[in-house]
Simulated scan of single mutants.
Amino acid sequence: MGDGWRLAVGTLTALPVRSPVALRPRAALLLAPVAVLPLAVPAALVLWLLPVPPLVAGLLVVGVLALGTRALHWDGLSDVADGLTASYDAERSLAVMKTGTSGPAGTLAVVLVAGLQAAALAEYAGAWAGALAAGALICLSRCALWIVCAAGVPAARPDGLGAVFAGVVPRPLSVVGAVLLSVIGGLVVLGLVGRARARMGGVTGDVMGAAVEVALATTLVVWAWAF
């Protein structure tokens, strides 16, 4: 579990950790919700204690999470949006995603999802209960990886994060992940995975990052009514 923990923290956050001695992708994914706890805590504190308008607090939390992950998930969301709208050819889509540049579709996807997250987070600001709930949802959003990396879901490429993590999570745990994502969040992630498989033949590290951000936006919006 030590190697799994280091792999989870090193992959999902910008926190400095020693490199794992051996790759333990399944353990890393199981620990993913806990690995981002060091990011969820300051995010919750911003929502609870910072004396700023709620929407400003929401935007700051989006920024805190982006800094804490080296904006890796946002890069994945941008690349996936560009790849899925670039061509009906799988190789062309994968090539576009690998360029690292952000086209119109990628830019719009990032703005839209970040806006949804910030606006939803504003509903959790100002009270300890809302801030605590937002922190918990930030952790639970990483359960999206249990769906993307479910057994039977292939990698689109023979290299990269997709090749390391794809297909390693038992399907029952993927179902648990969908439930923890308020079901609706799980269905959204399932839709993303289905689209990636149909267009690219499988998932990539970019799809994993995109799933995290989409799942967070969805679950925040779904539960915002409670606050």
Rank of each mutant, 00 (worst) to 15 (best):
M1R: 07
D3V: 07
R6L: 13
V9I: 15
G10D: 13
T11F: 14
L12S: 04
L12W: 09
L15A: 12
R24Q: 15
A32T: 08
A35M: 08
A35R: 07
A35S: 14
L37A: 14
P38D: 09
L39A: 10
L39Y: 09
A40V: 13
P42Y: 12
A44R: 05
W48M: 01
L49T: 11
V52R: 14
V52I: 02
G58C: 02
G68L: 07
T69L: 06
L72F: 14
G76M: 06
D79H: 06
A81D: 08
A81S: 09
G83Y: 13
L84F: 14
L84P: 01
T85H: 14
A86M: 12
Y88E: 09
E91L: 03
R92W: 12
R92S: 05
A95C: 02
T101Q: 10
T101C: 01
G103V: 13
G106F: 11
A109V: 08
A109T: 10
V110E: 05
L112R: 05
G115L: 10
A120W: 14
A120V: 13
A120L: 14
A125K: 04
W128V: 10
W128Q: 04
A129H: 11
G130C: 03
L132Q: 03
A133Q: 13
A133I: 13
L137K: 08
I138D: 01
I138S: 03
C139P: 03
C143V: 05
C143F: 13
C143P: 00
A144R: 03
L145R: 07
I147F: 10
V148I: 04
A151S: 15
G152T: 07
G152P: 04
V153Q: 04
P154G: 02
G160S: 01
A163M: 06
V164Y: 01
F165T: 02
V168M: 00
R171I: 02
S174L: 03
I184S: 07
V189S: 02
L190W: 12
G194R: 12
R195F: 12
M200K: 03
G205H: 08
D206T: 08
V207L: 06
M208A: 14
G209T: 05
A210K: 06
A211C: 04
V212M: 00
E213T: 15
V214W: 05
A217M: 05
A217T: 06
W223Q: 06
